[in-house]
Design a binder for these strands. Structure first.
Lengths: 219, 219
DNA sequence: AAATTTACTGTACCGGCGGTATGGTTTTCA
DNA sequence: TGAAAACCATACCGCCGGTACAGTAAATTT
């Protein structure tokens, strides 16, 4: 009962690391059980097939990520009453979190799964999609709250800005790994943070006529 | 000679689609040769092993992508002498290109490879890294050129902004796939475009003292 | 036209892996 | 103490990556 959950957790941990390093298709059950120190029968006692392992990995990853976001948004709100300030704090905390990982971010399971979609059934894909939507919703809510206090610059859809943050994180992870530099992700989150600051700062053109050279840059 | 290149190309095309849908590890040679209508011996005549297939896929993808960037940057420069304008045009063209794909962007091979790095030898990973660096360099050069005419807003490193574009593309592809909405990628590129416009437009704080509520948002 | 190279096909084989089946054993908890 | 939980052991199937080697039709060169 108790020990079963432990073994299950160990399997998931080992499998996740393997999936993020080699992909789901190349992750062999034999390898996982060898590292976990159990037999094949033991594995199939916990997961009836590889697809159920995938689903469990997915759910575990989403839960963990939700916890992190809960925490970091909560702390942001604690440290300031101003919605813009607290979101900026949240972003800063996230950047620190990502930068402090010893060997860089281990990778986003959602990203690996969307790039191996044909390996999973519809339920797994739907779980992933709804998780992504929920995270995007979080960011969008934070932005909307800010926009109710600070009018945003024109020409930017806040829904797109919210999604862009997810893009920057997933893209940042890929860039960090691809370039072999774990700090890229942290810098990207901070760059997005600067973008948010910029987005809610009034433009010169909102107040006075632009100088000649900015007329070219405008719409 | 001629026919060999054709077959090779057909193999690469089929393999690429499979890799983007299932991952490299889950792409079976048997499946590829079945679809290509050749035998296993035929396959190993062209590629001595799976790793060589990976390398060929990589090089082909980079070449194709370089061609696209060459074209779209060239057309941007043709349509305006102003570096900011021509980059904005380039981004618009790219967004259109990505939006016009019938079933959405097929996926970024670099992204799949970085998420399956343990499957490839160092040469393949180095090729990918240098390609990414080269693309980031293109964006950074374009931004630097703009910055020499239009002073950029403070607090943003242009290197980071350049990398952010790569992040937005790769992240946008993941979001498009994960959410099942091909238009997300196009919208993300356009959102980044708005960001660039904002970046080179003067802020109110550069000209006059900010109103009370923006003082909170500042550094 | 002959010789050579290119671009394959056919067959046979190996070991590893995902997955199933089945029966047994220890551990844990009520 | 007894049942349920959490495994272990063994055997087996079919697919796949990869190797080896022998043969051949077509294109290209000489």
């Amino acid at each position: 009962m108790r020990k079963g959950a432990e073994t299950r957790e160990r399997i998931l941990e080992i499998a996740e690391a393997s999936v993020l390093a080699k992909g789901f298709g190349a992750t062999s059950i034999e390898e996982v059980i060898a590292e976990a120190g159990i037999t094949k029968s033991g594995f199939f006692y916990h997961f009836k097939d590889k697809n159920e392992l995938a689903r469990a990995l997915m759910l575990r990853y989403i839960e963990e990520n939700d916890r992190i976001f809960d925490d970091v948004f909560h702390r942001g709100r604690q440290l300031s009453d101003d919605p813009l300030q607290s979101f900026l704090i949240t972003l800063k905390l996230l950047a620190e979190l990502m930068g402090d990982l010893p060997n860089g971010h281990p990778g986003c399971l959602i990203a690996t799964f969307t790039y191996q979609e044909r390996l999973f059934d519809r339920t797994v894909r739907d779980i992933a999609a709804s998780a992504v939507r929920s995270w995007n919703g979080r960011f969008r809510d934070a932005l909307n709250e800010i926009a109710s206090v600070y009018p945003a610059r024109k020409g930017m859809d806040l829904d797109d800005v919210a999604i862009m943050f997810s893009c920057v994180i997933d893209g940042g992870i890929i860039m960090s790994r691809g370039l072999g530099d774990p700090r890229v992700l942290e810098r990207q989150i901070l760059a997005f943070r600067s973008f948010v600051k910029m987005l809610f700062a009034p433009a010169a053109s909102d107040i006075m006529l632009p100088p000649a050279h900015t007329a070219v840059a405008a719409e």
